[in-house]
């Protein structure tokens, strides 16, 4: 695998993860528990779409086959998507959506912090912009997880269930492969495993404040980063890609 191939894969991993998570969050529109949360969810989805545009545009540029960010988003099938499995998990209740968000936000903020120092200036620039938004995302999702974990008996139980349900999708974020090896060597991106200790520290601290128990089993589902997804992604794409697929070549 040469450097550009690895870089392309990596950029898809970043851009597809923000794209799919944004899609999931936008499913909430008009259905949140209070208006402030509707606004915050739409705002987060909007930030993530903006980041997606940057990552996928650069991916298309690196690939060099003339594909735009929109081509990549709307004209690939599931096996070519490289998002983390975590982000395609269904929304569940509001607590589960925010737990998924928190588990992702912490990873994303650590990743972006390292990418700000990437040897590839284009990546460093995107990371610089995105990390400002993500700092706010982490703060909000952490506070919500704490409030709901340490709220009522019912909310505590729901958040504990959400954590146990989603935790098996955390490990994938830290497992490196050939792609990562090439990028680490080139100083473009960090070794995913190197983010784990800080991640565990932050998540552990928030779970403690939320009175939630981290699962002991560290089993990790994998596949998203190499294109082997859960059953859910196909349905997401069927929705997301409908117009581009049904009316090929039209401009919108």
């Amino acid at each position: 695998m040469n450097r550009d191939q690895a870089l392309f894969e990596f950029l898809l991993r970043m851009g597809d993860s923000t794209l799919i998570l944004s899609h999931r969050i936008s499913e909430w529109c008009g259905h949140a528990p209070v208006i402030e949360e509707d606004i915050a969810l739409a705002n987060t989805a909007l930030d993530l779409i903006g980041q997606t545009q940057f990552w996928l545009e650069l991916a298309g540029e690196v690939e060099g086959k003339g594909r735009t960010a929109d081509n990549l988003a709307h004209l690939r099938d599931a096996w070519d998507f490289r998002n983390l499995l975590l982000v395609e998990r269904p929304n569940g209740d509001f607590g589960k959506t925010l737990m998924r968000q928190f588990l992702f936000d912490v990873w994303q903020s650590l990743m972006l912090a390292k990418l700000k120092g990437s040897s590839d200036q284009r990546i460093a620039d995107i990371a610089e912009k995105a990390s400002k938004e993500v700092a706010y995302h982490v703060e909000r999702s952490a506070n919500t997880v704490i409030s709901l974990g340490d709220g009522t008996e019912e909310s505590h139980q729901r958040m504990q269930d959400a954590l146990e349900d989603l935790y098996p999708y955390v490990g994938e974020m830290f497992i490196g492969d050939k792609v990562d090896e090439v990028l680490v060597k080139a100083g473009i991106a960090p070794d995913p495993a190197s983010l784990r200790a800080e991640y565990d520290r932050i998540v552990g601290d928030v779970m403690y404040k939320a009175t939630l128990q981290l699962p002991e089993d560290d089993f990790a589902h994998q596949g998203g980063k190499t294109g082997r997804h859960t059953e859910h992604l196909g349905y997401i794409l069927a929705d997301m890609q409908f117009l581009q697929r049904a009316y090929p070549g039209a401009e919108w």
Binding site: P33, V34, E37, F94, S147, L148, G151, T152, S155
Partner: peptide, 13 residues
């Protein structure tokens, strides 16, 4: 469906 969230936010506050 959001009642438990609003209750929990209040309880936590």
């Amino acid at each position: 469906n959001g009642a438990w969230v609003r209750d929990a936010m209040l309880a936590h506050a």
